[in-house]
């Protein structure tokens, strides 16, 4: 599988899907419950897109047997997950 092509497709798809969800949220503004769901989904796809991109590159470097870059992308993935799931909790404790 072509790594560059796959990553480009994932990024583009993620950006477009999240933007469509945000647009749907705006257009369904009359119904707060429905628009809220669209916004939540849009945010999830938006933030998940770069995470998916990193996860994909871990798998692809592993498939290429590129040990150094598998390790590098794995570190990036762990950092990203810490930033998303651990740091907000730490910040609440600190502030």
């Amino acid at each position: 599988m072509d790594m560059e092509k796959t990553i480009a497709i994932v990024l583009r798809a993620g950006a477009l899907i999240s933007v469509f969800l945000f647009a749907a949220g705006l257009l369904s503004g009359a119904n707060p419950y429905v628009s809220g769901l669209f916004f939540e989904a849009g945010l999830f796809v938006l933030v998940a897109t770069p995470v998916t991109r990193v996860l994909l590159s871990v798998l692809m470097f592993a498939a290429e047997r590129n040990a150094l870059y598998t390790a590098i992308t794995l570190i990036v993935l762990v950092n990203l997950l810490i930033a998303i799931f651990v740091v907000p909790v730490l910040m609440r404790i600190l502030s």
Binding site: A23, G25, L26, L43, V47, V87, P88, R92
Partner: peptide, 27 residues
């Protein structure tokens, strides 16, 4: 994108995102 995703989690957790007015900007 990866850097901003790392930072955005904190802003989302602290409630510093007004999604209705942010949406047209993002689009």
């Amino acid at each position: 994108g990866v850097t901003a995703a790392a930072g955005s989690a904190v802003y989302l957790a602290l409630g510093y995102v007004q999604i209705v007015s942010a949406s047209p900007v993002i689009i």
